[in-house]
Amino acid sequence: MSSDTIEHEASHGHHEAPEVVEGRQRLGIWLFIVGDVIMLASFIFTYLYLRGTNTGNGWMTYLQGDTNAANYGQPVHEKVLSAGFNWTITAVIVASAAVVWFGEKHLRAQQKGAGSFSLIAAVAGLLAIVASALTVIQLRSIDEHMPYHLLSQNVHEFTYTAYGSAEILLNGSSLLHLIVLAFLGFGLAIRASKGLVSSEGLKWSQARFVRFFWVWVALGSVITAAVTSLINK
């Protein structure tokens, strides 16, 4: 790579073609998704590892901690979180992804632009908020069944079982993702309403990249729901 091997291009290169920029951004979003896949894999590994080791038979079992109860100190088996409710949340997330997926593809195929996509993105964002609210309810249901241990006289310290802990991790992660999806959905809706999402050049690629991430979050939700529904007790 000596200096004589450097030749000047015919044109200045700092105005890049839209497809070049789009390719770069596409790889970027895929790499972020790869990082997120690893994160979810580590969460599911945690869930399965704790289930597999079941240390001290404590995966779902805790000791009765109410000092006034006759059965104080007896093991209590925690209830499994409602699989139906879990799948309901997942269904809402999948529906929001489907809205983004089919809406984006259809509009791109129809060469339609801003106005229509604004509505689609807003609907998807709303569904993400609904899923967020349902996830908060799910998290609170863990809280309501929270067992506790008696640490010392008259002082109760609450402690989740390993199962409850793993569910908090998975649901908490899902909630964070849904907040990001809502941000992206409403952001796209606002941008589309301003004419910043259209079929011209790069302006559409943002919608496509959001779709990639949205579909991944939905897929991750399906995987999580499947694992926690099939492997729990």
Binding site: G35, I38, M39, S42, F43, T46, Y49, L50, T53, N54, T55, G56, N57, G58, W59, M60, T61, Y62, M146, H149, E157, F158, T159, Y160, T161, A162, Y163, G164, S165, A166, I168, L169
Partner: peptide, 28 residues
């Protein structure tokens, strides 16, 4: 990402009552 997950669980164990690493509540 594994490090972030591990530290998230540490924070939850310390401040939110979870039991990822407490053997007396099913963790390890």
């Amino acid at each position: 990402p594994f490090f972030a997950t591990a530290m998230t669980m540490t924070i939850l164990d310390r401040s939110a009552g979870t039991s990822f690493f407490s053997a007396d509540s099913g963790g390890t």
